[in-house]
Design a binder for these strands. Structure first.
Lengths: 249, 249
DNA sequence: TCAAATTAGTTTCATTCGTAACTTTTTTGG
DNA sequence: CCAAAAAAGTTACGAATGAAACTAATTTGA
């Protein structure tokens, strides 16, 4: 994301879901042609969809539309995550918008990496990258999130033993730790983590302000968080006290 | 597909991949507005994509674009296949364009059916249908075909025992029987078939004119073919001689 | 430091788009 | 059988689009 104007367009879209080209032009004080060029760029990145006269986010539940929120931070986190991976590695990646970006960055920058994931979204997301192999763990297909859950995940994941498992989260608090919205998905995360030496949680720092409903309970695993520089100092201390590593993108 | 004009548009697109709205209007002798309405319909069915001034097929390798070829026959085959399934059933469905249409028809018309498939494409294809559950078998993700292959398929499929397994094919001849283009996918078909009482091959009749490279070798399974009425008489006899049932859509 | 090259943005224009109001054709039910 | 309703198609028009040629701003490197 080179231009700050593109960031403003995204913010507007996250708020309103759908904005007219003419309105964007007035609001941002540039010509409609310029706006259209910006929108073309954003569409290339799959962050928005263009329709006659408008720009809009992808469908509500789609990971693509979640990517529009804090895209820049997520990009940086994804790049940092990719640095952990070496050519030829196999890495577990769980569903989630940061994870999807990390998967794409890895696919674009590494050679001969195998991504093992429970996310059909991620499989499709890196489909055009020739230098990566993808393994999809079997399971029940959750239609909204396009990810796979259920006991087959565990069976399949046990075929592997990897160094890193990259996962997402939707919140955190001191008492219950990191959380997820969905019980089935939380279990999938545990099952995948069990086959990895190190779990890395990819999350923007604003997730630390409130917790979701289902604790991930990763206590048995060596865990680290990869987040942006805005993580509050008190959270840092609490994480460190619980022996959770902190990486800043 | 109600209108024969829409069929003509599809034929043109299969030939040329991309046709201008103005040209379609002249060729078919109706106004551009009418063409645009047709194109909107076809786009709703995911058979084509619209761009400014043109209509074009989805990307070359995409199953969606293969659906444009003989769409009507495929629709009928899919409807007939759906009749085999009852509310509450679990059915195996393999990758392929006829299979995808069958999956969608089942999802739209049946209640409480579980589709077990090795096709991430099919999972996405029925994503908006609320009355169906999808289970994706795990494996190596083939980027072009969006299907899963490899030994995990067999492990996962063994969790089930179902009545019907719907599969596709890319050819047939008398000596080697039904074929597939790809060794890994052929093995996935065998692994899925092993957990089903009855294998039903969904294919348009024109596939009987030539064979692909990898025999499916389903000899151990009770097998039937579901195809359109144009299947040649001699092929019928040869299939019957090999104890393969024939259903006509 | 300054000229050339690249990048960003604008203006213009012919073309395409979607909508709405209108006409023709086909269906349908009494 | 035929009138009313529904469906299919057209015309007309203002708004949106993409391409190209042009101008302004920024980068770069000699």
């Amino acid at each position: 994301m080179k231009k700050k104007r593109e960031k403003e367009i995204l913010s507007l879209l996250v708020e309103r879901r759908k904005v007219e080209v003419t309105e964007l032009s007035e609001l941002l004080g540039v010509s409609q042609v310029t706006i259209r060029k910006d929108l073309d760029e954003l569409e290339k990145m799959h962050l928005i969809k263009r329709v006659h006269g408008f720009a809009q986010l992808s469908s509500e539940d789609d990971i693509n539309s979640r990517l529009a929120w804090h895209y820049e931070e997520k990009t940086k986190i994804a790049e940092k995550a990719a640095e952990l991976i070496s050519d030829g590695d196999t890495v577990f990646i769980e569903n989630g918008s940061c994870c999807a970006l990390a998967a794409l960055t890895i696919a674009k920058t590494k050679k001969n990496v195998t991504i093992v994931t429970n996310s059909a979204f991620i499989a499709g997301y890196v489909r055009n990258e020739p230098n990566v192999q993808v393994v999809l763990l079997g399971g029940i297909y959750q239609k909204e999130s396009q990810c796979l859950v259920g006991p087959m995940i565990r069976d399949n994941a046990m075929n592997y033993n990897v160094k890193y498992c990259l996962i997402g989260t939707d919140g955190w608090n001191e008492r219950i730790g990191f959380t997820n919205k969905d019980q089935m998905r939380a279990q999938a995360v545990r099952d995948m983590s069990a086959s990895a030496e190190q779990v890395v949680i990819l999350t923007e720092s604003d997730k630390f302000s409130s917790a979701g409903t289902v604790p991930l309970n990763l206590s048995g695993c060596k865990t680290a968080v990869l987040t942006d520089p805005d993580i509050p100092e008190d959270v840092r201390e609490k994480l460190t006290a619980k022996d959770i590593g902190i990486m800043i993108a």
